[in-house]
Amino acid sequence: MGFMDGSTGKRLERVDLSGAMLRHVDLRNARFEQVTLTGTRMRGVELGHVTIDGDIEDLVINGVDVAPYVYAELDRRYPDRAKMRPTDPDGFRTAWDILERLWDGTVNRARSLPPELLHESVDGEWSFVQTLRHLLFATDAWVRRVILGDPHPWDALDLPFDGMGDVPGVPWDRAVRPELDKVLALRKDRMATVRRYVDELTVDRLDAHTTPVPDPGWPGPDSYPVRECLLIVLNEEWQHRLYAERDLDALEDTTSASRPT
């Protein structure tokens, strides 16, 4: 593949560059979102003042696999993080206890801000309300649809991930601005669904595979390990709360800066 373009500020969306060769390319201040770099090889790279957030494994820098160091440091910073990788039913119940407690604190923190700020994007990320809406989608997809077998679990406020594309029957309204309490009522219902399921979780259920749901939706009609479905939900809840806390920091700074001195 050959690609030459001397312009700056180029915007590329939904472009397949797999197998591309990029040579003598200036990517300073570039932004990558929803990008897959699996199998990428970089040589002669100048990398400084770079921020990477994502699912990282087998990341070798100058001959050293740094991913284990990254994960060990994250576990050190967040002692509850290791509990998001449970192996038995009691571990899943403990993980959900932790998430309920942490999210209660995050929601209380968000309520201290002016309601309109909870619809504001920080650095192009989802707003606080959009983050909660995405977690509705995650629970509906992996618990209500895949595990519990509901072919149409969606609420109109569910927000899929940006890279999903249009899927028949799955709502996707990024622009709607519902009140926080309306979204929280849905969240309470969905979290209660997970609570009931993990409270009744047994080893046999945890080791089972789901029955495929043939109706159109996401994820597709397949059989999934229950364990993996629950781990996905735990990861979504954990990671998006951290993102929400990060963005609340920025919103609080904005609020403080706007107050008269």
Rank of each mutant, 00 (worst) to 15 (best):
Val226Tyr: 09
Leu206Asp: 05
Ala95Trp: 08
Leu148Trp: 04
Phe32Glu: 05
Asp253Glu: 13
Met42Gln: 12
Phe137Arg: 10
Leu99Lys: 14
Gly6Lys: 12
Pro115Ser: 10
Met84Asn: 09
Arg23Pro: 01
Cys229Leu: 09
Thr87Ser: 11
Ala138Thr: 15
Ala244Cys: 07
Asn108Trp: 04
Leu234Ala: 02
Lys182Val: 06
Ile232Met: 08
Asp249Ala: 01
Asp162Ser: 12
Thr38Glu: 15
Arg144Met: 03
Arg109Cys: 00
His119Trp: 09
Val107Ser: 04
Tyr69Met: 07
Phe32Pro: 05
Pro212Gly: 01
Arg174His: 12
Pro221Ser: 12
Asn235Tyr: 05
Asp53Asn: 10
Arg23Asp: 11
Glu245Ser: 06
Pro68Ser: 04
Leu117Met: 15
Thr36Phe: 00
Pro115Ala: 10
Asp150His: 06
Asp158Trp: 06
Tyr69Asp: 10
Trp238Arg: 13
Leu99Gln: 15
Asp247Glu: 07
Ile232Glu: 13
Thr51Arg: 15
His49Pro: 00
Met21Arg: 15
Trp103Leu: 01
Leu231Ser: 08
Asp181Lys: 11
Asp162Phe: 05
Arg81His: 08
Pro151Lys: 14
Pro214Glu: 04
Arg174Asp: 10
Glu179Ser: 03
Gly163Ile: 02
Trp172Ser: 07
Leu231Gln: 14
Leu113Arg: 13
Gln130Phe: 01
Leu118Arg: 07
Gly19Tyr: 10
Pro168Ala: 13
Gly2Leu: 11
Ser256Gly: 00
Lys10Phe: 00
Glu33Trp: 02
Leu132Cys: 07
Tyr69Gly: 14
His152Trp: 04
Gly9Arg: 15
Tyr224Leu: 03
Leu135Lys: 07
Arg109Trp: 08
Arg23Leu: 06
Ser127Ala: 07
Asp207Lys: 13
Ser7His: 10
Ser258Thr: 14
Met84Glu: 11
Thr36Met: 01
Phe3Ser: 06
Val170Asn: 11
Asp162Tyr: 08
Tyr243Pro: 01
Pro214His: 03
Arg246Pro: 00
Gly6Trp: 11
Gly19Thr: 11
Ala82Lys: 15
Leu230His: 11
Val213Ile: 09
Val183Cys: 02
Gly6Val: 05
Thr51Trp: 10
Pro68Thr: 08
Val15Leu: 08
Arg28Gly: 12
Val129Trp: 03
Leu117Thr: 15
Arg241Phe: 00
Pro89Arg: 13
Pro89Asn: 09
Asp253Gln: 14
Arg241Gly: 00
Gly9Ile: 14
Asp222Ile: 01
Val50Ser: 02
Ala72Ile: 03
Leu47Ala: 14
Arg14Tyr: 04
Gly149Ser: 06
Tyr71Phe: 06
Gly165Asp: 02
Arg43Pro: 01
Arg144Glu: 12
Val226Phe: 04
Ala30Met: 07
Arg31Ser: 08
Ala138Arg: 11
Asp249Tyr: 05
Glu125Ala: 08
Asp97Tyr: 09
Val203Leu: 08
Pro214Cys: 00
Pro171Tyr: 05
Arg93Gly: 04
Ala156Val: 13
Gly39Met: 06
Pro114Gln: 09
Arg174Gln: 07
Glu100Gly: 02
Met21Ser: 12
